[in-house]
Design a protein around this nucleic acid. Sequence first.
DNA 1: TCCTGAACAGTATTTTTTACTGAATATCAT
DNA 2: ATGATATTCAGTAAAAAATACTGTTCAGGA
Lengths: 156, 156
Amino acid sequence: MIDKLDKLDTRILNILQKDSSLSTKDIAQQIGLSVSPTHERIKRLKTEGYIEKYVALVNRERLGKHLLVLCTVTLKEQSIETLKNFEESVICFKEVLEVLCIAGGQDYLLKIVVDDVDDYHTFVVTHLSSLSNISTLSSSFVLKEIKRETAYYLNY
Amino acid sequence: MIDKLDKLDTRILNILQKDSSLSTKDIAQQIGLSVSPTHERIKRLKTEGYIEKYVALVNRERLGKHLLVLCTVTLKEQSIETLKNFEESVICFKEVLEVLCIAGGQDYLLKIVVDDVDDYHTFVVTHLSSLSNISTLSSSFVLKEIKRETAYYLNY
DNA sequence: TCCTGAACAGTATTTTTTACTGAATATCAT
DNA sequence: ATGATATTCAGTAAAAAATACTGTTCAGGA
């Protein structure tokens, strides 16, 4: 099979996105194949880039990361160079988990995770606001994470 | 050890958040322990809730999910009942990966993943806008996903 | 100092992963 | 239609990993 997904591949991806600790045997049973072809498919899905990586998802609160902040940033100018410079700088901060470039006014949305409000203040002052070409910077604290899902729903 | 993390636990979590396909042996070598205690620690981190689950992260674009949308929702009223009702409804939509309750005006930010603009239009019309008590609904298309990280940086 | 419990390394067993083989099935050109 | 070719499958075997178990060392408290 050359780089195209059939129903079984899709089912495998739906399963692994939910729980990658399942054995090949378990998955094989769920999709109705034997172990060998199931294993081959899973391996192929990885090598062909459908699966980027396997990770452990941890409990944020349990680990003392109590504050989740959404931060909207607008830049003074929108030259390629300025955008590129900002992007390259901001992705380096370990506190910044996501950086999205948003349509409309050319701006960015940052998802930032820190221990607490003090920690956030320190981060903004010592790191974020020191970046060049920032015009405005607006922070919104997240009161509650109602849903957090990493699995895309794939239908065949 | 009763429910507290030491330096080794933290290192294990940092490793597994980046790549959970590593063998216990590999991790043991990285943290400077033998396989047995390393395995015990990993198992404990799971049972004690530090690790929520193991998942495969897939390539969104590769799988035809070309559109990522941030949608801000404000409700007509902020009674407990109304909020609860909205939250319970919206988490059921498979297209909605994240739901965050934001400080300030009582509103929500939704991260929505769909195939394309048509798909999004259909979703809004047939699902999202049909929810009761919605006051305003503002959609922003994501032009580019600059950074997407699921690992929290843990320092000891 | 002796006792107790926690954490470790090492070993053994079970399970899983991975590679390999041949059969069945589908594909395609003749 | 038929034969050649490639793909996908199941089954088996070997390698590797996960898991359970055992005894030892080390630290803290009576």
